[in-house]
Write a protein that binds this DNA or RNA. Structure first.
Lengths: 235, 235
DNA sequence: ACTTTCATTATTGTCGACAAATCTCAGAGT
DNA sequence: ACTCTGAGATTTGTCGACAATAATGAAAGT
């Protein structure tokens, strides 16, 4: 945790209870990397930092715990999860299943305007690649991310929530811990283009197939860039 | 909520904090149907019932909220989710993806002893069907459920937790709200047998295919037994 | 020098109380 | 009979304090 957290506290009057604000702020803090994997979250420190009592802090902790972003052991406090490479790989297996289904559903459910927006995202990604061809695919803006748009376009609220609220935060946590895979930007972009084409053709079977292959490629790239020779995490 | 909840409170000294006990007790209460969908959960009432203060109650509520079993609106309290038929169907779409992947992984990861145990489960199910051929497939014992065993056999902790801790409780909630589909017991059993066979042959492709078809069949049966003519929930 | 023991400290778990918001329902008004 | 209003009651949000447990570190023993 490099910086003071209170800088981002909305102190909004819109949301009446502080527990919800805290939860959101801490979630963003973990996703952006301001709070690092392995960091201990001290109740008193955070309470003072945010100018609240410990009760709302603890309630936010319980939600973070159930969200899978922190661990909580009795009388020992809360600590940001530090996923092993094995955890990362496990997460990507589940991601393959979920995003594959999301793509299948999105193929029939996304509206023309949504598809246009998705095409814009891909096009912008292509322009970014021209400037920096070897860079990884970075998820700068959550709302303008290729995968997030598909997760939202599948018209399945359970799946959308699962991916956006639970899965992508944990994925960002894994990336903060293990780094991004370099040099897969161009390959990812090509795979995105083919998935987009399948969606526009309303071909759910192909869209699922391509998305699953896409996630599997990312997983394989991660595995091949892993430190250990047997595919196990160093820590 | 028909019965007093405190009957199941472990009051165990083993688990030091009461928040965890409450969370588990409430989760079981919702899963078993003792707490019904739509029920309001009053902090003071529960605090008195369990003989604790409101703080641990509230912390348990936050975890239930993030688990997706209750809703929480500010100054209005906590209420057990009352899923629409649409939610039920959405859940089954995601279930198809997750259990399909679990079956694929389980085909290569499950040990011989685990497969034997799974075969016993299927056999026992067959004996139950002889006595009551028209009954639905009921999940009497969580540990001896066909799907739970596969979820645990896939050797992917993320997937196992997602299915057992998050998905199956929500599924039970949906069943409590919308009832079980009658008369699918025999068909389900046959599908289970074929999935088991694929697992024993270590054929992940077929196992995933059959499991997805199995879940889709259950979904279709639910849809056809639905009240509305257009597949929309009455509520 | 190293390990063990024990008292001190720091942190978490729980509680009761107060403030703020919502809900309830009797009574006035149409 | 129906709707609207508002005071009282109920319920939630937050706080400060105390108790219980774990982490820390100094002193004693080997």
């Amino acid at each position: 945790m490099t910086d003071t957290l209170s800088t981002r506290l909305p102190q909004t009057g819109r949301r009446s209870n502080q527990s919800d604000s805290l939860f959101e702020t801490l979630t963003v803090g973990i996703m952006t990397g301001r709070i690092q994997p392995g960091d201990k979250l001290n109740e008193l420190v955070l309470a003072e930092e945010f100018g609240v009592s410990r009760a709302p802090i603890r309630e936010a902790f319980r939600r973070l715990q159930e969200k899978g972003l922190v661990t909580h052991v009795a009388h020992q406090g809360v600590r940001v999860i530090s996923p092993t490479l094995q955890d990362f790989l496990s997460l990507l297996d589940v991601r393959e299943a979920l995003e594959g289904m999301a793509s299948r559903l999105a193929a029939t459910e996304m509206g023309p305007d949504e598809l246009d927006g998705l095409a814009d995202v891909v096009e912008q990604h292509g322009r970014d690649l021209q400037r920096n061809p070897d860079g990884p695919y970075v998820q700068n803006d959550f709302d303008n991310d290729f995968h997030v748009r598909i997760a939202r376009g599948c018209r399945n609220p359970v799946l959308t929530d699962l991916l956006c609220d639970q899965f992508y935060p944990r994925l960002k946590l894994c990336r903060a811990r293990h780094g991004l895979v370099k040099g897969r930007g161009l390959a990812a972009w090509n795979e995105h283009r083919r998935i987009l084409a399948a969606l526009m053709e309303r071909d759910g079977d192909v869209a699922e197939l391509l998305m699953r292959r896409h996630v599997r490629s990312a997983r394989a790239a991660l595995l091949s860039s892993a430190p250990g020779p047997d595919g196990r995490a160093a820590v």
